[in-house]
Design a protein around this nucleic acid. Structure first.
Length: 202
DNA sequence: AGTCGGATATTCT
DNA sequence: GAATATCCGACTG
């Protein structure tokens, strides 16, 4: 398979986050293949970012994976949901939260896992469930390893930058424009309005 | 269309 | 015992 080269995750996390938009994420679990194109991401910049789990270099058992080199996957649970991050850089605890994808392969399987027909992957907890991402299987795994890989996918027509979601009590960090979405794609958190032409893809 | 609150489970203090 | 990078249904307008 021609997996996507992920060396672009090694340096600048904000740039890497934008480049992830449109990338196809594929999981294959018990022979069931599911995938989707990334539509929404958020960057978390380690030491200096008050909203990050690793702010000020805090290390816990939960966030230890953020200190691994780029290409590792960090999965944590909260409120009973899993959230998936791609770890970036080699020397800093930075990463990118995958918040939304557009379903592509195995849509029927996703509907079954989600127990509903719509809004399959428009949020970080939703897409991990649709793709079958679990802490036990995927935390600490590597991108393009046994359980998850990425393919080139599509290109966004335009990228929109917004404030991040769900960090209202993080003081100055609430204003950072570290959330990137495919403009006009409905598979993102709190989508309002009408989808753009071709769902915002080129 | 927008806001609100309860459910939820794992980790950390 | 508190906190949390969420989700969904039930309200109101």
């Amino acid at each position: 398979m021609n997996y996507l080269n992920i060396d672009f995750l090694s340096d600048n996390t904000l740039e890497a986050a934008k480049q992830l938009l449109g990338v196809e994420v594929v999981t294959e679990i018990n022979g069931e293949k599911t995938s989707g194109f990334i539509t929404e991401v958020e960057a978390y910049l380690g030491l200096s970012d008050r909203a990050a789990h690793t702010f000020n270099g805090k290390v816990t058992k939960k966030n230890a994976m953020m200190f691994e080199p780029y290409g590792h996957i960090y999965v944590y649970t909260m409120h009973g949901h899993n959230c998936m991050n791609f770890v970036t850089t080699t020397d800093r605890p930075e990463g990118i939260l995958i918040r939304g994808i557009e379903p592509h392969q195995g849509i029927d399987i996703m509907k079954e896992r989600r127990g509903k027909e719509t809004d399959l992957t428009s949020g970080p907890g939703k897409l991990t469930k649709a793709l079958g991402i679990t802490r036990a299987e995927h935390n600490g795994a590597k991108i393009n390893g046994d359980t998850l890989h990425v393919l080139p996918g599509r290109n966004p027509a335009a990228i929109e930058e917004t404030k991040r979601i769900g960090i209202d009590n993080k003081e100055e960090a609430v204003d950072y424009l570290y959330r990137f979405i495919v403009k006009g794609n409905p598979n993102v958190s709190r989508f309002k309005g009408k989808p753009g032409i071709n769902n915002g893809w080129q």
